[in-house]
Computed example of a mutant assay.
Amino acid sequence: MSAELSILDLFLLASPLVKTVMLILLGFSIASWAMIIQRRKILIAARNQLQQFEDKFWSGADLSKLYAEVTAREHIEGIESLFVAGFKEFARLRKSNLNTPQAVVDGTHRAMRVALSREVDNLETHLPFMATVGSISPYIGLFGTVWGIMNSFIALGAVEQATLAMVAPGIAEALVATAMGLFAAIPAVMAYNRFTHNVEKLENSYGNFMEEFSSILQRQTSAAHSNAQ
């Protein structure tokens, strides 16, 4: 047997079970990287949208015109969905009989809270899968390694004189499973931690906007209620 073996050679020489483990880990790695790339794009877009909308919102734009501008678009997401949900409920409650300032503000706040929960759920899509890959991949790889090394030692028991050259390829192909487990787990864990932090920052920003927007609507409702009396 050649003293130098490539990763492909080690895969081809591995037992069927170890090959299955390697293929599972390879699938985990490919799926994880695809989700990492997708989540990164989505979170960057959400952060940019947050900045652009807040700049427009705090520039003193008329809320009715801003609402019409946002709802004119076909796809509404992120902080814009909170604004639309809040302003829509605000307008609906203002037209109802239960138009006391506190009732209007409470209803608006509940509508935005539901929208916030929905947006956070969207941002956290695929994060549990990354956490799962990061948690179980090393153990799956270790299982393949233990199985491969066990088979190597069982094979050694069938020969009278064992040498390092005989056992080394079997151990090497088994250790590849552990390496693949780490290769799948490390990027997934790093991405999960980073993306979770980014989602928390976005959620805090959305929550701050929600409270500030509620305060603005409360002031408007209180002023209108005072003028009506």
Rank of each mutant, 00 (worst) to 15 (best):
S2A: 07
A3P: 07
L5S: 13
S6E: 10
L8Y: 12
L10C: 10
F11C: 09
L12S: 14
L12I: 11
L13A: 13
L23K: 08
L26Q: 08
G27K: 06
S29F: 03
A31V: 03
W33V: 04
M35D: 08
M35F: 09
R40T: 13
R40S: 13
I44P: 00
A45R: 11
N48T: 00
Q51E: 01
F53K: 02
A72Q: 14
H75G: 01
H75L: 06
V84K: 09
A85I: 02
A103R: 07
H109W: 05
R113S: 12
D121F: 05
E124H: 03
T125A: 09
H126D: 13
F129L: 12
A131I: 08
S135Y: 04
G141I: 11
T145K: 09
V146H: 01
G148L: 05
I149K: 09
N151V: 07
F153Q: 12
A158D: 14
V167I: 15
V167N: 09
A174P: 05
T178V: 02
T178R: 01
A179P: 03
M180Y: 04
G181Q: 03
F183G: 10
Y192K: 06
T196V: 05
L202F: 04
G207M: 01
E211M: 12
E211I: 12
E211K: 12
F213G: 01
F213L: 11
I216K: 15
I216A: 12
Q220D: 14
Q220H: 11
A223Q: 15
